[in-house]
Amino acid sequence: MFKRILLTGASGMVGKNILECTHFNKHRLLTPSSRELNLLEIDAVAKYFDQNDIDLVIHAAGEVGGIQANVKYPINFLVQNTLMGINLINTAHQSGIKDLVNISSSCMYPRNAVNPISEEQLLNGELEPTNEGYALAKITSTRLCEYINREDPSCRYKTVIPCNLYGRYDKFGPNNSHMIPAVIRKLIQARDNKKASVDIWGDGLARREFLYAADLAEFLAYAINNFSDMPQNINVGLGDDYSINEYYQIIADIIGYKGVFENDLSKPTGMQQKLVDISLLKQFGWHHTTSLKDGIQKTVEYYEGVNHE
């Protein structure tokens, strides 16, 4: 059992869901803020490892955002995430830490990958242009873990590749949110302002797979308790997906929005489909427990609670 775990990104959505997961109570979690541990400064990372006795690292920190943010700030998404990944992972290895979980993203798979997308399809094609900077950074961290394992077999540096995430502690702002929280905010405002119609970017036919963030935390607890059996790279998802139009309707039904939807064909839609292959996940013995409707309901309740405090 890992007694002392360094969790980066503890203030983010994934990090906060890990902290709420009761399965982590038997471990001691070190959760430094960015002021206490600046992952962009390699000397600060080395100093932190030197001053703390760490059994396992969970790398959940990152600069994240939706299509708008990725298109507008590709330099930031590439540089920030690449530096954080390399500084943390390589320095952990140099500091003698033998076990590390790198949380990546299905965004790093090729835009024209055959769905469902298996782990072997990494770097087998052109990336999606709307989030290429972020994807390149995540690919770098994933490959670095593979290289460390190859050069030093005593190390177990493994990568978790979740599908799109949503849930409590998500970002709901118009400039940095992903699809589900953005739609929740948009439709609640439309409902409250009695708007007759709401626009959907693109034709709404692109398909997406979303996992409730608390379920990812449950998976991570399961993974570290079965770490030897966990594959080098493993997709974590549901195994099914919905169209953007369907997500809008599901969220509208939950919050009680009665207006109509209009597709704005001048706006980008991203990859047409991004459904991960969960064959290895099934073999590993884990399955999600939160349905899409239940997860969205809980996320809506969280959003309304935060905005009405």
Rank of each mutant, 00 (worst) to 15 (best):
Q283D: 11
L78W: 01
L78Y: 00
E119R: 12
L29G: 03
L83G: 00
L88K: 00
L29T: 06
E304S: 08
D253T: 12
I75Y: 06
V45A: 01
R185S: 09
P129K: 13
L275C: 01
G66V: 00
G85R: 00
Y303K: 09
Y247V: 09
P116R: 05
H308A: 14
V276K: 04
N235H: 00
I200Q: 06
V64G: 06
V276C: 08
H287W: 02
H308M: 10
D241A: 15
M230L: 15
K186P: 00
D43P: 03
Q232N: 13
N225Y: 11
M271H: 09
I97L: 05
G202K: 08
A44D: 11
M13C: 07
R185H: 09
L281A: 11
Y302A: 05
L40Y: 01
L144Y: 09
Y247I: 06
I188C: 07
I234W: 12
P268F: 09
L7N: 10
Q94W: 01
S118E: 01
K47D: 11
D53A: 11
K186N: 08
L56M: 06
F77M: 02
I224K: 14
G12Y: 04
Y134T: 02
C21E: 14
Q94K: 03
V57S: 02
S154N: 15
H27T: 12
V79H: 01
M108S: 12
I58D: 08
R150S: 15
Y109W: 09
S34E: 02
N52L: 12
S141F: 02
T299I: 06
N38L: 06
T159E: 07
N245I: 07
G9T: 08
W286E: 06
R143S: 10
F24P: 12
V71T: 04
A46H: 04
S118M: 01
D199H: 03
A217L: 10
G285N: 13
V306C: 10
